[in-house]
Amino acid sequence: MASQQADRGRVGGLRRAVDGTAAEWFGLAVRLGLAVVWGWAGLAKVSDPAEAAQAVRAYEILPESLVKPVGWGLPFLELALALLLALGLGTRIVAVVSAVLLLVFIAGISSAWTRGISIDCGCFGGGGAVDESQTKYLQEILRDSGFLLLSAWLVYRPRTRLSMDAWLAA
């Protein structure tokens, strides 16, 4: 009896933590953090179109005809996600797109790793072939997994402070 009550209390506490005001402020931090990540990643890939294309080509996954469209379009997709996250507009959909994109990146890096090719992921600019001793596949995957957790949180709890979503719902 007593333990049941304690359980209920704990569940209530958890629910308050996940749904309460504090969680909405936490959500704001997650949302802005992810916006900074996408903004930084996108901007770093914009300046040199040939470099962006080569970063994609180096994965040796896409056919040559898709290398340039992907290399050129991807940074702007990332910038669009950054903008939408910063505004807090359609947070859950944007978080889903973020998560899918990060899963694609993790799959691409894992694929390069297992095929034994030596590349920089080109996640934040750069990219292309590097010396075998300079590959950082594990760090790159762990980093993207961290960003994936941020996205997953926003899919789970898309309601955040200072968002256009909240303003539209009011």
Binding site: V46, P49, A52, P69, G71, W72, G73, P75, F76, L77, L79, A80, L81, L83, L84, V97
Partner: peptide, 13 residues
């Protein structure tokens, strides 16, 4: 927003 960004990006680049 996403579609426009990608299309504009490819054209500009």
């Amino acid at each position: 927003v996403i579609a426009a960004a990608v299309v504009v990006g490819v054209v500009v680049q």
